[in-house]
Amino acid sequence: MIGYHLLRRTIGFAFILLGLSVVIFTVARVVPGDPARMALGPLATNEQVAQLQEEMGFSKPAVVQYFDYIGGVLRGNLGKSLLTSRAVADDIAQALPATLELVLFTLFLIAVLAVPLGVLAARRHNSWIDNASRLVSLLGVVTPGFVFAILLQLLVSHFHFFPLTGRLSTDIRFTPDITHLALVDSLLKGRFDAFADALSHIFLPALALSAAGIGQIMRITRSSMLDVARRDHVETLRSFGVPDYVITLKYMLRLAAVAPLTILGLEFASLIGNAFIVEMVFAWPGIASYGLRAILSKDINAVMAVVLTSGLFFVVANLIVDLLVGLIDPRLRARG
């Protein structure tokens, strides 16, 4: 049953990606303006523009161009980058691990900070700890990513706890070439110096990226726990003397986890969006940095590839959330 459910969701998500490709293709090609002219700038000659138009297939009808493009995407060909003069697919493959690592570490921070605090705040409802956590979550939600990033940089520039930019120090001489995730590869290779260096590099950007998520997930965990606490079945267990910690950490938490998990999936898109700002401030060599350069230099193929990749990120994240929610809730498994 859960199999059907996941299969159906996968197909649904595939349709979403398809829709997304149409939207971004429309934005890139149909919107007024000549992409080739925009890419080359006002100083290029008309011949140069015409040549580029031919190269990019702009002379064909838009629908044909779209199917050419999608056909290419399905074969792993995302076109050529005007910015780096390399295949966009290669550029993406190179930048992706850094972003993946940043996002995964951010999710880890959100999970270990927000969920326990949310549970605690709900347990000590209306106490000082609840109020303090509410303040933290409010600040997390209302502080713009770029402001938080800048404040972190200011702080560190005074105290020098962490490196300000980059992914690894140059003098470490370490290449993550197994999973391409520096934190994982350094451990696999037993390079604890590299691990410490990678950790110190990733900490600030991940913290800046997690701020909004921590605030939101903490809030949702808290209200979800409070909601579950009112249910009859909590009273059932309580009236039979099952200890509080068992009721809270086993029975309530599993049921209450559905809401924050779902929200986390939905908020994944804005997490990737914020990565653009964080990667820029911390000079993190990820896909967002690449995308931003592509956007500023109007490198259409690269821009489209970045948008599609972040859409794929979102879709995969939500499939995982679906799977987890299905594992938690037997009613969903039965319904399919």
């Binding site: 979403i16 939207v23 971004i24 890139a28 898109a269 995308g291 970045v306 979102f314």
Partner: peptide, 12 residues
């Protein structure tokens, strides 16, 4: 919803 709003707005 699937596309990061900031990314989409940047592209547009």
């Amino acid at each position: 919803l699937a596309v990061p709003p900031l990314v989409m707005a940047l592209a547009i």
